[in-house]
């Protein structure tokens, strides 16, 4: 993984054509500007995750699978209410404002 520290006004360059500029930093969030050719789509990572999840979900969505799921939900409901408390991270948690890349 590549980790780069940058300040506001600085940028990194990916390949010959993609520039990522740091425009603004606030506690917990960073505003980036991306310069890239039209043919390179720039999307938020969550959109990509949701796209992958949708493709996977559409592939397995049969009435049989739904019936299995309903059965799981019912058997779980019959058991004790388990503490499936909030496992999500706090919205206030600082997001990673450094550029990272898988090796």
């Amino acid at each position: 993984m590549l980790i780069v520290r940058r300040r506001v006004g600085q940028a990194i360059v990916i390949g010959d054509q993609v520039e990522v500029h740091v425009l603004e930093i606030q506690p917990g969030r960073v505003k980036l500007g991306v310069v890239a050719p039209k043919e390179i789509p720039v999307i938020r990572a969550e959109v990509k995750l949701t796209r992958q999840q949708n493709l996977e979900a559409a592939g397995g969505a049969t009435p049989e699978k739904a019936a299995e799921l309903a059965e799981r939900l019912r058997s779980r409901a019959a058991g004790a209410e388990s503490g499936s408390g909030p496992q999500q991270e706090s919205p206030e948690r600082p997001r990673n404002d450094e550029v990272s890349r898988s090796a």
Binding site: R44, T50, L73, S75, R76
Partner: peptide, 19 residues
């Protein structure tokens, strides 16, 4: 399909949970 980036919710929230 609303992508709620700052919500903290997971795109892979495990099931089942008590309905």
């Amino acid at each position: 399909q609303a992508i709620m980036s700052d919500s903290g919710y997971s795109h892979r929230h495990p099931l089942p949970v008590p309905p």
